[in-house]
Nucleic acid binder design. Structure first.
Lengths: 253, 253
DNA sequence: CGGCCTTTTGATGTACTTCAACCCCTGTGG
DNA sequence: CCACAGGGGTTGAAGTACATCAAAAGGCCG
């Protein structure tokens, strides 16, 4: 139904390219040319330290739905996402799910390395990630104050994001949740060099619902209505922001 | 109406004593005899380091409703609570409030010292806290790896708690929220040497509602019903757990 | 005792969920 | 080439958990 309108805007140039691993083109060893280099925790390290750093980590790839780790597993590794998107979630015993966040290139997982993982991390798109042995990583961090400082900043950011999300879940309406989520994701994609108008949504509606504390139907209805009101344009695997101001107003900061 | 039942159980021996500052009895200088010593981040320091540590911090007292800091203020200090209870919250522009957490003795605030505080910290009861200059604290931490490690653990714990709360807010019913909250608070009080059956609730119903993402009426109704069903006994400034098993079942982990 | 604020309880309203049907792809096999 | 099964998404109708509105019932401090 939006096809007539959508057509002239297509094809979006490489909507999800930046989220996808760049084929086998990238050499899997070393941090040179890592697409997440400028974003990640590792940027804190001097070039001289990178060899040592690269030595304890190795690139891994994950297919969609494949888990980086599962809730309850021994927490023996930490990760930096280099491409793709990861969902981090917790399950209740009866199957209810809360997605804690969607991770993008440059994001770090494992700031809270307790004995066991408290949540599951699963690839949404094909994912590439640097995997580090948790123990080796911790040891290295102890000797590199700049890395440690960088980790602290990452932890601070993540905590702030978690608090934002608590406000969203506790005190916002369905419309506000969707709008606020889209604005936040757009911001994060923009930092990573994504276009500023098209927001990639490679995750399913169920994923969105489980992140926003809603049902799949409510998410669908809200997005449909925003499209009808010409705030958004629904495109495959994403949305285009037609009226950023209105979207902002809906988010009700 | 619960008076007949409640009477024999009263008076609860010093229900809130542990949350209250011990009058002027405590000398305000130094960390010796600090009631939070065993719990706080500072426990990581060797006795030898404590002088230096004590030098950059000073004890402050706050009356109920008084702010330790406010959302938007320059983030120039961090705190360790030594007695009392603090609520940490964020406000939306239209006045809606989300309480991110209630802080108890030993808890640390300021793990995310960005430029400005992203939330407000306000005394619920009379509060005593160690205030540290943020810059001096950071400098000291750089030179004391054990303190840094302790901060990391604190950050990890806080992040895990935030994630727990996201699950609560996003995916749990009103009954489950109240039950899960009470169990978690009971656990935290128990660690701090509180009794295991009586849960201190010095905060208002409005505070509870704003923490649990509910309204004051819903909180009141749920607690009333739990009392009617003999799961809880409502006492002044708290509740007594009569049927821990049932409460646990209601929380639906 | 009387005023004020918090809490409780009741009656009504509604935003979101639940249930259900249908659509639209994409893939598979005859 | 089309049939059709199956999964994700949208849309509609009905239900419900919680919110809102309203009023009464405590506590607390003058």
């Amino acid at each position: 139904m939006t096809a007539a309108l959508a057509a002239p805007l297509f094809p979006t140039p490489g909507l999800l390219e930046r989220l996808r691993p760049h084929a086998a083109a990238t050499a899997l060893t070393g941090c040179d040319g890592c697409p997440a280099r400028a974003l990640a925790v590792c940027q804190a390290l001097a070039d001289a330290d990178m060899d040592e750093f690269g030595a304890i980590g190795d690139q891994q790839r994950f297919a969609p739905k494949e888990a980086l780790f599962r809730q309850g597993d021994d927490a023996d590794a930490v990760f930096t996402i280099t491409s793709g998107m990861v969902r981090l979630y917790r399950l209740l015993s009866d199957g209810r799910r809360q997605i804690l966040g969607f991770l993008l290139p440059g994001d770090f997982i494992g700031l809270a390395p307790d004995e066991r993982y408290a949540s599951t991390a699963e690839a949404v798109t094909p994912v590439a990630a640097c995997r580090f042995d948790a123990r080796a990583y911790a040891t290295l961090a102890e000797r590199k104050p700049r890395l440690l400082a960088s980790l602290r900043r990452a932890a601070a950011d993540e905590l702030a994001a978690a608090q934002d999300h608590m406000v969203l879940l506790g005190r916002r309406s369905a419309d506000e949740r969707v709008a606020a989520f889209l604005i936040a994701l757009r911001q994060r994609l923009a930092v990573r060099g994504g276009g500023a108008v098209t927001i990639a949504l490679p995750m399913s509606r169920q994923d969105l619902a489980d992140h926003l504390g809603l049902t799949i139907e409510t998410v669908s209805r809200v997005i449909s209505r925003l499209a009808r009101e010409r705030v958004l344009l629904v495109v495959p695997d994403g949305v285009r922001v037609l009226d950023a101001q209105k979207l902002q107003a809906l988010a009700a900061a």
